[in-house]
Amino acid sequence: MASTFDTVAGIISETCDIPRESITPESHAINDLGIDSLDFLDVAFAIDKAFGIKMPLEQWTSEVNEGKISSDNYFVLKGLCANIDALVAAKAA
């Protein structure tokens, strides 16, 4: 079974036409990989479908914009994957 990171990296690679080998757990989706907001909608849709969740993107964006949390927490892939795992676990609970 693929790890969360492998699945997310595969989605980003396919959706955004980014070489898979350039995507690492430390990659920032926006700052490093250059994913724009429209492509990120595609990524979010694919992640939501793949994991059966609804990522709270609006809440995350709001928290970042209000300075409550670093964007790294949600947009660096290891952080994103940790949040996905938490959402999957919460759904299963």
Partner: peptide, 9 residues
């Protein structure tokens, strides 16, 4: 098809 956060398909 999908009701996402801040978007829908």
């Amino acid at each position: 098809v999908h009701d996402g956060s801040g978007y829908a398909v």
